[in-house]
Design a protein around this nucleic acid. Structure first.
Length: 479
RNA sequence: UCCUCAGUAGCUCAGCUGGUUAGAGCGGCGGACUGUUAAUCCGUAGGUCGUAGGUUCAAAUCCUACCUGAGGAGCCA
């Protein structure tokens, strides 16, 4: 007999059928005559209630039906006599596939803290919250590929190991096969990487952008979707040392085209999840509501699903950095000295408190900031005519902050070289990048979306370590 | 990396202005209950009070260092 997934039982008319169900026990309760077993098989957030006649199934076997144990249950699907569910499986036969010692199994049929579950990341797929997040994460992975495929983009696998250390996106993890206890030295006493595996120093990538640009200069519209590594000692709820990034790069796109695509892309992902992950979103939404009960009324945030629909319904606000500075300079908190960092005028780097003010208080919707001062942005961004600002764009979301960073790229060879000199970027190593500005250079643009931050927004999870199965952060690489 | 807070039973936490034998709820186990929904009721076991040092007649409680975790900041996605 073939096993039926619980998701299919709930979605299809199977009343009266003899079925085989396999899954893990969430809870068992009952009395001497009858037991109720909540079984979950990961296919859907809902459990299937298995009804076991104690005499028929046997007390001995039911004793082994503990929270966490794996079962195979044969029985007839029928309408439930109880109230909490419409269907239930009346067991004719139960097999314990895998026992689970209730004294040792860490997960109990009760609420656990997210911190505790993080320490038990190997088992947290058994919980409602994490199975919901995992299914939503999967749906979004699919939606990313679908969006770009439908729009004629080509997916490019950019290298995970790179030898370029000029990308400037952050501290890098070194990759080496040298014996760390006995590293070869050159004449100056420095480590001689010519003896290393690649014949040069190598790192884990911090961004696929530069290679993505190469591909866009032939395929026109490409995107990458891969792991990215930052060795920054960042200890926050929105940073990981290993995270997944989506980086589209488009030839013939200017900054406006870039913003249009970014907005359309984000809205597509949200609407895809709204349409396809109704049950899981509903669960997470309720979870947040329960959590918010402990908070003061004015600190409570919008319902998760409402919040997602709200983002879809409005255009994102698009303003320049200079306009944002003016708004902030004249804002109440700035005048009253409520900001930790006072805004005086052009040139200031926006702090999270300022971004949050713009998004959550002033506009109350996602904001795209453009045309930042060149001094606080990367070398490859296209210089504006004012010679002061660059065609950068940051998409700011409530709670998350910067979810997308992008720009129109500098396509002029001379200007790019000038910027690299100003910022001490070694040109020799970047000959291949500069080549694209020599041979048929065209205006082009792109952006990077932190995938986990997007999942945070969609699931409402406060800590980024809870939206990736096995988070890598400073001092933490368990599992 | 900086600031703040926390670390006591399997989990969530109380005890902390030093003073008998360290508590509760949940979970586990045993029992009761003819349909339960985080079932309910009765009983029961379970602790090197994060680690190391110090102060004291006496430390879960005070001090120092370290480790771990959380929140915020910076860096960014």
């Amino acid at each position: 007999m073939r096993r039926t997934k619980i998701v299919d039982i709930l979605n299809e008319e199977k009343k009266g059928e003899e079925l085989l169900v396999k899954g893990w026990v969430r809870t068992r309760r009952g009395n001497k005559q009858i037991n109720f077993i909540a079984v979950n098989d990961g296919s859907v957030i809902h459990n299937l209630q298995v009804v076991a006649d104690v005499e028929k199934i046997g007390e001995e076997l039911l004793r082994r039906v503990t929270t966490g144990a794996a079962l195979a249950v044969k029985g007839e699907l029928r309408e439930s006599e109880g109230k909490g569910q419409s269907m239930e499986l009346l067991a004719s036969e139960i097999e314990v596939i895998g026992d689970c010692d209730p004294n040792l199994f860490p997960l109990q049929p009760k609420k656990h803290s997210l911190e505790f579950l993080r320490e038990n990341a190997h088992l947290r797929f058994r919980t409602n919250t994490f199975s919901a997040i995992a299914r939503i994460r999967h749906a979004m992975i699919f939606a990313v590929h679908k969006f770009f495929t439908d729009n004629g983009f080509v997916n490019i696998h950019t290298p995970i190991i790179t030898s370029s250390d000029a990308e400037g996106a952050g501290e890098m993890f070194q990759v080496t096969t040298l014996d760390l206890k006995n590293t070869p030295k050159d004449d100056n006493g420095a480590i001689d990487f010519s003896k290393d595996f690649f014949g040069r120093a190598a790192n884990l990538t911090v961004s696929g952008q530069l290679e993505g640009e190469l591909a866009a200069m032939g395929l026109a519209d490409i995107y990458t979707f891969g792991p990215t590594f930052r060795a920054e000692n960042s200890n926050t709820t929105r940073h990981l040392a290993e995270f997944w990034m989506i980086e589209p790069e488009m030839a013939f796109y200017d900054l406006n085209d870039n913003m249009d695509l970014a907005e359309r892309f984000l809205k597509y992902l949200i609407s895809y999840v709204l349409e396809n992950c109704t049950d899981d979103l509903g669960f997470l939404s309720q979870r947040l509501k329960d959590e918010e009960k402990n908070r003061k009324a004015d600190e409570r945030s919008m319902d998760l699903i409402e919040k997602l629909k709200f983002v879809l319904s409005d255009d994102f606000v698009r303003i320049t950095y200079s306009e944002a500075i003016e708004i902030l300079r004249n804002s109440k908190p700035n005048k009253k000295g409520k900001f930790s960092y006072k805004i005086e005028g052009f040139g200031a780097d926006l702090q999270s408190e300022h971004e949050r003010f713009l998004v959550e208080k002033h506009f109350k919707k996602p904001v795209i900031l453009t045309d930042y001062p060149k001094d606080i942005k990367a070398f490859y961004m296209k210089l504006n005519e004012d010679n002061k600002t660059v065609r950068a764009m940051d998409v700011l979301f409530p709670q998350i902050g910067e979810i997308i960073g992008g720009s129109q790229r500098e396509e002029s060879y001379d200007k790019l070289v000038e910027r690299m000199d100003e910022m001490y970027i070694p040109k020799e190593e970047m000959w291949w990048y500069l080549d694209t500005r020599k041979f048929g250079a065209v205006p082009h643009s792109g952006f990077g979306l932190g995938f986990e931050r997007m999942i945070q927004f969609v699931t409402g999870m406060g800590n980024i370590r809870d939206v990736i199965p096995f988070p890598r952060t400073p001092k933490s690489a368990e599992f």
